[in-house]
Design a binder for these strands. Sequence first.
DNA 1: ATGAAAGCGCTAACAG
DNA 2: CTGTTAGCGCTTTCAT
Lengths: 331, 331
Amino acid sequence: MASLKEVAEKAGVSVATVSRVLNDRRYINSETRLKVEKAIKQLNYRPNRVAQRLRLKDGQRKLIGLLVPDIQNPFYVDVIRGVEETAYARDHAVFVGNFAQDEGKEKMYLDIMKSESIDGLIVAPSHEKDSEVTNLVNSGLPIVCVDRGLSEVDVDVVLVDNRKGAFDAVEYLIQKGYKRIAYIGGLPQIPTTMQRKEGYEDALRKYGLPIDTDLICFGDSKHESGKKLTAELLNLPNPPQALFTGNNLITLGALETIHNRKLRIPQDIAIVGFDDMYWSISLNPPLTAVRQPGFEIGKRAAEMLFQKVKEPDRPPVKLMLKTELIKRESC
Amino acid sequence: MASLKEVAEKAGVSVATVSRVLNDRRYINSETRLKVEKAIKQLNYRPNRVAQRLRLKDGQRKLIGLLVPDIQNPFYVDVIRGVEETAYARDHAVFVGNFAQDEGKEKMYLDIMKSESIDGLIVAPSHEKDSEVTNLVNSGLPIVCVDRGLSEVDVDVVLVDNRKGAFDAVEYLIQKGYKRIAYIGGLPQIPTTMQRKEGYEDALRKYGLPIDTDLICFGDSKHESGKKLTAELLNLPNPPQALFTGNNLITLGALETIHNRKLRIPQDIAIVGFDDMYWSISLNPPLTAVRQPGFEIGKRAAEMLFQKVKEPDRPPVKLMLKTELIKRESC
DNA sequence: ATGAAAGCGCTAACAG
DNA sequence: CTGTTAGCGCTTTCAT
């Protein structure tokens, strides 16, 4: 890799001049510029981003971090894509970390992000009191939370109305005539898990249905727990008629158990899931689901982050996007 | 963020000493070490990875790059996880880039990787003659290819026996009695697309079935093209009885078209796909598919890369893993 | 309009 | 065993 110095030598100017033609487009004699540009081309010079970041100040490093809880979850894949596209449009690179729902790994990634001199961070914190992220916000690093907020500090956040989304799903189930409806949540410490539970209960309450704690259960937001909890629910003496599953991986796990038992959907058991996937129509049967705009969330979060970087003192904003109930055939 | 200098001041030693207790565990007076460790703890010091990378030589920077063609494809998500887990076990960070099947974006990412001073790169090149990646291999950067190799240079590569995997799938279809079998491939310039086509033709030939070019088509390896090409195939005057789809996104697209037309699988049209997903059992109907071990591919590639970094002159090796045909109900 | 030089935070000779 | 110092590649005053 050619360095600035080599370019300078080849062009017969100082490194400062080369740096100027690269960044600071004023005050350059046009002949000098030509010479430099020629040398750059000949050597196929590319600035060393590491040296650049070491030297540059906050907000000019062209690198942001993105920390997601589970890359196997297609929702976060959409968020990642939304962030990346927006960042690249602004010539920023994105350092993505997947902490796989492991708080230890989350901390490790946070350490890496800090020491990689990023301009800002987009993160879906493990839980609302996440002290590592809270400290980082307090340290002044521009941060935007996605999917979940933080309770101990005022921070920018982009998410959906989980309570409303869940309410809509369960209300639809009730309107379809189902009475015993179970909720299979993810990790209880994740805010969305509880918000969706609230929405579930809101709907039950509105229609005067009892809230039966036997029908409310929590797992770890992954496929396996969806599979296992569905089995437990179906083993109940008085099993539910319908399932409201708390995220897409849980939904997939639930479907697996139902299919293994040769139960018919929705005749034997109905299901509506939180999180739609573009291939939900190809599931057996086509899934009724609450769609959240993952790509849009990522995009908005990135835009918000860039704004925050530019104007660090503007007060944090909360952006709540809408969910949409996609009606298909699973209930 | 505290710096080495601040730690040194607090501990009353030189920066060199602090650096030594951090890296170079020999030759340190135990009292000195204690003082330094205390200061490190008090200041909550973390080394600045950017400064470290700028200073360090090849192979010691604890950062590798990973460039994948499509993060929306669950296969690559598995590869990413395999690479990450292996890298983290060795205390390396992974810079992941998703070029979304866009050669321009691939080049951009390659530039970023180069200028981020990585120790090595794992990449699934756009095509076999990918000159950017080829040049990078020739430049001496340790590189391991996954999923696809390079024809113009001898390089390490981890992939599966695509031809055999495709052969097994199509042979199974033939044994089930299907005679008019179509192949829906991805981008024709991707090596796996053509290898899978070879396997498809091998099977047809072995059983004396004609190779009908009307039944062989290519798209762009994404959901939409699977959807569209399936529609075209079904519109043929003499449509196929079975589909062999070239990757998981194409499969999902094909299923969508089939379901939209209210066709029954496998009675009206059978399907077997390349790439299994853990939720393939929940598709309508449970999908018969060729499984490739994505996680394992990522893991092996990372191990191979670390070896290459340690011993840059060892001759490149090709590792070919096996596929497995998972028989379910779609044919 | 251009160059010299400081310095970002760190590691690794080299000297003692 | 420890300190001093050069230098990784870059940007940015400060001079000129």
